[in-house]
């Protein structure tokens, strides 16, 4: 069984990485590998299909964000599920959330 599915969509200078599954010590490498190949200015990580993120997963999101900012780019986290959003808020990562994020299921 695949624990994390990573899909990449690129359009108009924006790379959207859509995750499905769980993000933890076991699966962060998959995300890091995909993100390592992204060259676009803006990176969007869609968490709507992620049912579980722990502190190791959050740390890897934070690292990716720091990386992107250092390169002068922009990274946004989209549509976390409520449990995940709560954990993000607890560790202060909600600042990475896209403002006015469209609710899960609705495409831009």
């Amino acid at each position: 069984m695949l624990l994390l599915k990573v899909d990449v969509y690129v359009a108009r200078g924006v790379c959207r990485v859509v995750l499905n599954g769980e993000l933890d010590m076991e699966t962060i490498a998959q995300l890091q590998e995909v993100v390592g190949k992204v060259g676009e200015h803006t990176l969007e990580v869609d968490l709507s299909g992620v049912s579980f993120v722990d502190s190791t997963g959050l740390k890897s999101l934070l690292d990716i964000n720091n990386d992107w900012r250092q390169k002068g780019g922009r990274m946004l986290i989209l549509r976390p599920q409520p449990d995940v959003a709560e954990v993000m808020q607890l560790v202060g990562l909600d600042r990475l959330l896209a403002q006015n994020t469209a609710p899960a299921g609705e495409e831009r």
Partner: peptide, 19 residues
């Protein structure tokens, strides 16, 4: 401490458990 970790993780694991 929220961001203390000897092994290079965010170190907030214990914070979450405490919460």
């Amino acid at each position: 401490m929220q961001h203390y970790s000897t092994k290079n993780s965010m170190g907030c694991g214990f914070t979450l458990m405490l919460y």
